[in-house]
Amino acid sequence: MAGERAAIEVDGLGVRFRLGRRGRRSFKDLFAGSSRRNRPGEFWALRNVSFRVQHGEAIGVVGRNGQGKSTLLKLVAGVMLADEGHVSVHGGVAPLIELTGGFVGDLTVRENVKLTAGLHGMSRAEVAERYDEIIDFAELGKFQDTPYKHLSNGMKVRLAFSVVSQLEEPILLVDEVLAVGDKGFRDKCYQRIDELLADGRTLFFVSHNEKDLRRFCTRGLYLDRGGLVLDASIEDVLDRYNADNG
Rank of each mutant, 00 (worst) to 15 (best):
S34H: 03
G23S: 02
L13E: 01
R37K: 04
D29W: 03
D29I: 07
R18Y: 05
G20K: 03
G12D: 12
K28M: 11
D11E: 12
R36T: 04
R18M: 03
E42K: 12
R18K: 15
G20C: 06
L13P: 00
R18C: 03
F31T: 15
F17Q: 11
G23Y: 11
D29S: 11
R21N: 06
S34W: 06
F27E: 05
V15E: 00
V10S: 08
I8R: 03
D11F: 05
F17K: 08
I8M: 07
K28E: 12
N38H: 06
G12Y: 03
N38T: 05
R36Q: 04
E42L: 11
S26D: 07
S34R: 14
G33H: 10
R36E: 06
F31M: 14
R16Y: 09
G12C: 14
S34V: 10
G12T: 10
S26C: 10
S34A: 14
G12V: 07
L19H: 11
D29Q: 10
G23N: 02
R37C: 02
G33W: 10
I8G: 00
L19I: 15
R37N: 04
S34C: 08
G41Y: 15
F27N: 11
R22H: 13
S35H: 11
N38A: 09
G23H: 01
R16W: 05
L19A: 10
I8P: 00
V10K: 01
L13S: 01
K28F: 08
F31L: 13
V15Q: 01
L19S: 10
G12F: 13
S26K: 01
S35F: 10
D11M: 06
R36I: 00
D29L: 09
L13G: 02
G12M: 08
A32P: 01
G41F: 15
V10N: 03
R36V: 05
S26L: 11
G12W: 08
R18N: 06
R22M: 03
R22Q: 13
I8V: 12
R36N: 04
G33Y: 08
G12H: 06
S35E: 14
S34M: 12
S35C: 08
I8C: 04
E42G: 10
R36L: 09
A32W: 00
F17C: 13
K28N: 12
S34N: 13
R18H: 12
N38Y: 04
G41H: 07
G14M: 14
D11C: 08
R25N: 12
V10H: 02
I8T: 04
L19Q: 13
S26I: 05
F31K: 09
P40K: 14
V15I: 15
A32D: 14
L30Q: 07
N38F: 03
V15A: 07
E9C: 04
R25Q: 08
G33E: 02
R16H: 00
G23K: 03
R22W: 02
R18W: 04
G14T: 08
P40D: 13
N38Q: 08
S35V: 09
R22N: 04
F31C: 11
F27V: 11
R39V: 14
G20W: 09
G41E: 07
G23V: 05
F27L: 12
L13M: 07
G20Y: 09
E42A: 06
D29G: 09
I8Y: 07
F27G: 09
A32C: 13
R21Q: 06
V15D: 03
